[in-house]
């Protein structure tokens, strides 16, 4: 959009005008906060602003520095910014949904199917935010066998591929550590 330090009072009309801006290439590349997913400038309205700041410090040090300078400036030239403005009633606070902290674990087990055949049951993949459908497809092609999503958080792979899974899963999704995969052994279905 317009250049970075917009002085709001002077060029408001210019800023709000409909039409392509000179010297801007579209699409504009946006920077979003990794914690609250909003544009960085709106982080301050997020209830967990502190965590946003941490994330910013880690991932975008440049922007974090800029933010800090701006904040200090604001503090220096008039902290009574709030006083001037009329206050409105009501809380108007955003509430953050608490993420349920389920332990991130993957369980693999073998289940018998008939006398001499077996299937492998994988549960817990969705605690890592993995799309189960994609994962099932991947297992199917990898092991050349049938593989399907059978429940809320369960994939059944036909054939006994439990041992291979310990290598394949961390390989495919780097965020999963091999230690996070638990072997439940043989289980009845």
């Amino acid at each position: 959009m317009t250049n970075e330090n917009i002085s709001v009072s002077t060029n408001v009309a210019e800023r709000l005008k409909v039409g392509i801006r000179e010297g801007v290439t579209y699409p504009i590349v946006m920077k979003y906060c990794g914690h609250c997913t909003m544009p960085i400038e709106y982080c301050e309205y997020y209830p967990e602003y502190e965590k946003c700041k941490e994330w910013l410090e880690r991932n975008m040090p440049d922007d974090f520095e800029r933010l800090k300078i701006e904040e200090e400036q604001a503090a220096a030239d008039g902290t009574d910014d709030d006083k001037k403005r009329q206050k409105r009633g009501g809380k108007g606070l955003l509430r953050v949904k608490k993420k349920e902290d389920v332990p991130k674990r993957i369980c693999v087990s073998r289940a018998a199917r008939g006398k001499k055949k077996s299937v492998t049951v994988v549960t817990g993949l969705s605690t890592f935010d993995i799309d189960l459908k994609v994962a099932a497809k991947f297992f199917g092609t990898k092991f050349a066998c049938g593989s399907s999503v059978t429940g809320d958080d369960e994939i059944v792979i036909q054939g006994d591929v439990k041992d291979e899974l310990f290598d394949v899963i961390p390989d495919k999704w780097s965020e999963i550590d091999e230690d996070a995969i638990e072997d439940l052994g043989d289980q009845k279905r």
Binding site: K17, I28, M30, R85
Partner: peptide, 15 residues
């Protein structure tokens, strides 16, 4: 956010 120019814009105050 990628193409901000094609919609009419209204600005609200900080509060």
């Amino acid at each position: 956010h990628k193409f901000p120019y094609f919609v009419t814009m209204e600005q609200v105050d900080k509060g």
